[in-house]
Amino acid sequence: MEVLRIDHIEQTYQAKNGEVAALKDISFHIDKGQFFSLVGPSGCGKSTLMSIIAGLLTPSGGQVLIGGEPVTGISPRIGYMLQKDNLLEWRTIRQNVLFGLEIRHQLTEKNIDHADQLLKTYGLYEFRDKYPSQISGGMRQRAALIRTLAVCPDILLLDEAFSALDYQTRLEVTEDVYQILKREQVTTLMVTHDIPECISMSDFVVILTARPATVREILPITFDIPTRTPLSCRNSPQFSAYFDHIWRELECHEP
């Protein structure tokens, strides 16, 4: 079932010193529960596209449809996780996790229970009364994810959400996150610069060209392994084939 449709999106920025064409005719769609990655040369317009999907930015052309309805303004069906965890240092972990619900006036008993459940499942419950500065970077990132998931979004947008972590933690967190998302049946679109990361997590990789970005290819990723996890598929021979493919596609567009 189609959840998200990006329909001929165009974006041109107006700045004091002229126009910047960022996106040109971007179209693709995502079905429920699928994991999509967005890769492209740096500065090609990936974050711009995410902002448009989240409803933070009105595109110059085209439209975004969620469940068939056009997006106007910030959609409650979307959870958008930024690169920085942005945990508020004057709030405890639990208060941070409840932040989104608080903003949306949805602090019902049921929703709070759900948030607590997420904290328990993902190993943060005993740290709920700690402050962000008192826990590790990996835990902070997980807390930020739980804050996003606590509002029960149908679609999750991750913009380089793991790039601030060190390699070891990053592998662990992506493994956790993959499990979380598959279990909660969340449709996900992730921006990353890390090719292995996008192969290990995605069902499809959308490869963009340099600015102004257009869709170069939508590459399906499948592995012949019974239970696929981000770590297990890294050993598959198909993995390096995908890597070479994406690498070449990106390379021939770098200036």
Partner: peptide
């Protein structure tokens, strides 16, 4: 920190919420 404000905006925070929950405590 504009990133804090952006984070609040992703949840659809109003200007008043941004002030009282982010800008003032900050």
């Amino acid at each position: 920190d504009p990133e804090f404000i952006r984070m609040a905006e992703t949840f659809g925070a109003s200007r008043a919420q941004i002030f009282f929950k982010i800008v003032f405590p900050y």
